[in-house]
């Protein structure tokens, strides 16, 4: 998994690339959580994510919860088709 972070005035965008599974989920948390904790809006760009499992979904759910606690928000951007399929399945669980 690779990532790149870009910053604008009020938004941090994390471009994730590759496959997100249990093995790399903590790496994603280490990148995303400090940005949320800084109080900025965080966009997760998932255009380059070709595979995501339940661990990746959990990172997204945890990020949303953390953002609410910090009075900010997390948005998903350019969600790839494979990730959209997994998100659709996860939404049935909501």
């Amino acid at each position: 998994m690779k990532y790149k972070v870009t910053e604008s005035e009020n938004v941090s965008t994390v471009f994730l690339d590759g496959e997100i599974d249990m093995d790399v989920a903590d790496n994603v948390r280490e990148v995303v959580f400090p940005l949320i904790d800084s109080g900025k809006e965080v966009h997760l760009n998932l255009k380059g994510v070709q595979y995501m499992d339940s661990s990746g979904i959990s990172v997204i759910v945890e990020s949303n919860q953390r953002a609410k606690e910090k009075n900010t928000k997390v948005e998903l951007k350019e969600v790839s088709q494979p990730v959209e399929k997994v998100l659709a399945m996860a939404r049935k669980f909501l």
Binding site: M22, A25, D53, S54, S55, I57, S58, V61, E62, Q65, V86, M89, A90, K92, F93
Partner: peptide
């Protein structure tokens, strides 16, 4: 809401 990957994984 429990955000436990194992639980969601079993659902998948």
């Amino acid at each position: 809401d429990d955000v436990k990957p194992g639980g969601l994984g079993t659902f998948f």
